[in-house]
Design a protein around this nucleic acid. Structure first.
Length: 326
DNA sequence: CGCCTTTGACCAGCGC
DNA sequence: GCGCTGGTCAAAGGCG
């Protein structure tokens, strides 16, 4: 870990949000299209979701606890379904009420992220079917079991792709940082970079270097707020942290975080996410503390206690004091 | 030498 | 069918 990275991690706020990526045609505007923004920093603890979104939630949806999501106690299919349901509701609500398409709604979200103005439309992840439909299918189904062999056949004899693979749920983090590639404890290999439409900032594609781990992440900058880095994780690590972290990535993470993250779930984002959550119930009672799309994902009482030092101290927003800011 | 990034090419999905 | 776009591959080169 370079001093630069350290500086980023210790001196920048770390807003983030959860996203179940929808991957529609406007996927390139990830900061717009991704749903469930959970945007936090010291000045703006959390972007309040528009009330019209909250109203669009289906109270009859089968809810899970947020802890379940983070700690992987439920399978991704269930997770996807839950998010999809709420997502569909939101999107439908948006389109119907605001009379806007996905693009325009998404564009407003980006403004939201920058201005923290709550009363704007937001684009949302489509349901699983639409998400899968809209994506290409380079990997065969059951990609979690893939060992890289399927990738070798891409250029040569490609398998028929009538069935579309189930895309992994994604966890997107918004991070205010000048560093694009944020250390998260895992080792990543960059395998691609693409220019993003309507954005001067490219999108980078990373893959976990561990064997048999198909976790990927994309890193890009919000073009409307270049200080915000959008990191989208896809998949779930099936291994512990690498024993030899490149640089001193492990060193910059608090021991408690690493320990708990590794022990609870070998997937850093979820574990980190879990620890970042506040332990009070303020945001549960206050609709403005909801995640976009599904407030009931949260179960604050089940969240881990926040450590009081190290990285998380910097990461953790002052939930109690800055409940809402204009 | 191993690991990583860069980068042009390729492929699939989607909209028109 | 065509063009656009996102996502990925893989060769080449850099770096420690």
């Amino acid at each position: 870990m370079s001093e630069e990275n350290k500086d980023h991690l210790t001196h920048h706020h770390n807003p983030f949000y959860y996203s179940h990526d929808h991957d529609d045609g406007d996927h390139h505007e990830i900061s717009h299209s991704s749903s469930f923004p959970f945007f936090i920093n010291d000045n703006n603890p959390m972007v309040a979701p528009p009330q019209n979104l909250l109203q669009g939630l289906d109270p009859a949806s089968p809810y899970m606890t947020f802890t379940d999501c983070l700690q992987g106690s439920m399978d991704y299919n269930t997770l996807s379904r839950a998010f999809d349901m709420s997502c569909s509701s939101i999107e439908d609500n948006l389109v119907k009420k605001a009379g806007v398409g996905r693009d325009s709604a998404a564009g407003t979200l980006s403004e939201n992220l920058s201005t923290t103005t709550p009363n704007s439309s937001v684009s949302c992840s489509s349901n699983e079917e639409e998400s899968v439909k809209s994506k290409k299918d380079k990997q065969p189904q059951g990609c979690e079991d893939g060992d890289g062999d399927e990738e070798k056949s891409k250029k040569g004899n490609k398998p028929k792709k009538k069935e579309k693979r189930q895309r992994e749920p994604r966890f997107a983090f918004l991070t205010k940082s000048e560093i694009d590639h944020l250390e998260d404890g895992y080792r990543w290999r960059k395998y691609g970079q693409k220019a993003v439409k309507n954005s001067p900032y490219p999108r980078s594609y990373y893959r976990c270097t561990s064997q048999k781990c198909n976790v990927k992440k994309r890193v890009e900058r919000c073009f409307q707020d270049p200080t915000v880095v959008i990191t989208t994780y896809e998949g779930q690590h099936n291994h512990q942290y690498p024993s030899t972290l490149r640089g001193n990535a492990a060193g910059m993470l608090s021991p408690s975080l690493l320990a708990s993250a590794s022990a609870a779930q070998p997937s850093f984002p979820q574990a980190l996410f879990s620890q970042l959550l506040p332990t009070n119930n303020n945001y549960q009672a206050d609709p403005n503390y909801m995640l976009y799309g599904n407030l009931n994902l949260m179960a604050p009482q089940q969240q881990l206690q926040l450590p009081h030092y190290g990285l998380l101290q910097d990461l953790t927003p002052p939930f109690g004091d800055n409940k809402r800011q204009p």
